[in-house]
Every structure is written in structure tokens, then in C-alpha cells.
Computed example of a mutant assay.
Amino acid sequence: MHMDKIVVSNDSDAVALLERFLNEDIDPSVVEFNGWPVYTLYLKGEKYHQSITPSLMRPLLELQKGLYKTAARVIYNDDNTNRLTDEQRGQFEYTLKVYEGSSDTNANLQDVFTGIAQSAIKKMNGKQIMIVLLAAGLLYTGHGAYEKYIDHLDKVDTNSTAVKNQEILAKSLKDQQDASLKQMQVLAAAVKQYPDVKRTQEEAQEVHFSVLKEARDADEVMVNGVPVTGAKARELTDEQRKKSEKAVFVEEFRVLAVDTTDASSTKVRVRNAKHEFWASFKDHTLDSKAINILQKHLVSRERVRLRIEGKRLGGKVQNASIIAVAPKQGEKGS
């Protein structure tokens, strides 16, 4: 039976289609991205006149890394972005547009998501591909997802002049709240059913927090249509640092993925009985034997005893570092 094209051109389309994929069997080949998703960033302040500071480039690069992880996840069912070819990296690279006269920027990710979908559709369950992609688009660029994230940290300043200047409240506040609530309900269902969506959510939130941290000196910052004053950004990021506590683990973990994208450090996705998170180590801090053991346990899926130190914030483990790898008796690293 022939199906008409399903066009996704905004958050509402994406939410409705994601909900359908969660509950129905739909041919993923009929889905078409048209002008969505779009990541938007607006900055107001003395330093931000038609320019992006070097410090703000860091979270924007993290956004690119997140997109590469999403691509590797849906194409190869693997978090390791080294699986991507140079051609794929070029295809999935986004372009950031800075508008004249301001630091109002956006990245239209339509071509990136279209390319990922076309590359993945023959390699993996089509339904799962679209669920992960639609969720990723909403988590990185959705108004509702970002609003919920900020609300989790504190309350959004809805009286910001940036809101008035950008005229983002085209609908009534109630309509916008209803749309945001629906978006979060559908995303929550996707997170619950699909671990890949949960990982993507964590990565998107890391990007969002990084933007807040680096935009602390702006008068106002608005991401995906959600406004926060610079003072509020400072308050939120400072408060989160105060709330975090040191976390030390000396126990067995399952190694889920190894990411060597960064030339100076390696990230390892690990899971114990209560937590799943990324932990990193500088390439010079662990010897080759320890690194080989991690690689072996990734393949064998057996648990390995690790010492990991990091921060615990709101039940999540962040900024984790692998300090030591303890081989099992008789196990060799080569």
C-alpha cells in the first residue's frame, strides 16, 4: 500500500510523528525533514555583536559531537564515532549561520538528519532509527525540551526582553505550555522504552548546560526560543556546582562503548547496578594494558572492576574519570 509523504517541518510535527512511531508501524522511508530541526542561539551583550566568542565555540562543538554520536548510534548501533567515515563526517557536519547586526545564530540540521536517516535506513530497524532521530531533534532543538531542562534547574524568566524582541510568543502562553507538556510526555515515553534515546538526552543536556556556563557574561541568552538572563545563567550554573558532591566508585562495571574521537582523551560508557554514564581518561593516565582490558570487556560484555571518580548531581554522575582498571585474576591486557 502506497503511503503519502510525512513531512516534519516543526516541533509539533516531530512530536506527533514520534508518538505514532512509538505506537504504530510506519514506513520510515516516507518521512521527510523540511526545515527541521533547527538549533537557535540568541545572545545579547557587549561582546556579542555579530560574533561568537571562542568559549562559546566549545558547546557548539559539543553539539557537533552529539550529532556524530547520534549518527553512529543509528547507523552502526555503536556510540563510537570512529565508526563514521570521513565522507559521513562531512555529510553530517552542520553550518552555523550568524545574522547581521546581532549574535542571533541558527543551525539548520535538516540536511544532517536527512543524511543520517538515508545512511541508516538499510542497516537498522527503521522504526528505531526514526524514534532515535526524532527524539534527538527534539532534545537538541525543541523548545519544550529545553524549557523543561531550564525549569529543572530553576524557573525560566518569561519576562525577558529577548522574548519580546524575538516575538517567540506567537501563540498564547497556555497553548505553548500545552505543546511543551505534550513534547515532554512523548519524549519521556521514548526515553523509557529506548536506551539510545536516554543516552541522547544526557548528551543534549550536557550541551545545554555548557551553553549556559559559557554565556554567563551575556545580558541575555536564548536557546531554542527559551530566554534566560545572563544573571540567571550565572545563578543556575553556580547553584549546580554547589549541589554536586564527590562520587567515588570501586566496583564492577559493564563496558558499553569506547569513544576515541578526542585526540587527547578516551571516553568509556559504563554501567553498574544503579548508574549508566560516560567516564573519561587522559591517554597518558592509563597504560596500554588497562586500555586493552577495557576494549576486551567491551567485546566480551563481561564486567570489569574500575575505580572511577566524579561528581554526583541530581542522581546523575558527571565529570567522571577512570582512575584505575583492575584485571581479573589471570587476565592479561595484551
Rank of each mutant, 00 (worst) to 15 (best):
T114R: 14
R89K: 14
L41V: 11
L286K: 07
V8A: 05
R305D: 07
A179N: 09
D78P: 00
R89L: 13
T105G: 00
L256E: 14
R89V: 14
R241V: 14
T237Y: 04
I150E: 08
V197T: 05
H49Q: 12
A215N: 02
S264L: 07
I121E: 00
T114G: 00
G142C: 10
V304Y: 00
D283G: 12
G315S: 05
V270H: 00
F92Q: 06
D11M: 06
Y149I: 02
G314V: 05
K171G: 09
S172W: 03
D27L: 14
Y99P: 00
L187T: 12
T200S: 10
E24C: 07
M124L: 04
D151G: 15
A16F: 08
S210T: 07
I129V: 15
Q118M: 10
A16Y: 11
H152A: 08
G142D: 13
M57Q: 07
V38C: 14
V191I: 15
Q118R: 14
T105H: 01
L139E: 06
D86F: 05
N319E: 15
R83Q: 08
G333D: 11
A190H: 13
I308C: 12
T141G: 08
Q110T: 15
A136E: 01
A320T: 13
Q185E: 15
V98T: 07
G230P: 01
A279G: 03
R241T: 09
A145R: 00
V248A: 01
H297Q: 13
Y76K: 07
G35R: 00
E206T: 12
G333P: 10
E46R: 10
Q201E: 08
G45D: 11
K171C: 04
Y146C: 11
G66T: 10
Q176C: 03
H152K: 04
R83C: 07
V304F: 01
S264M: 09
A263K: 10
V226C: 12
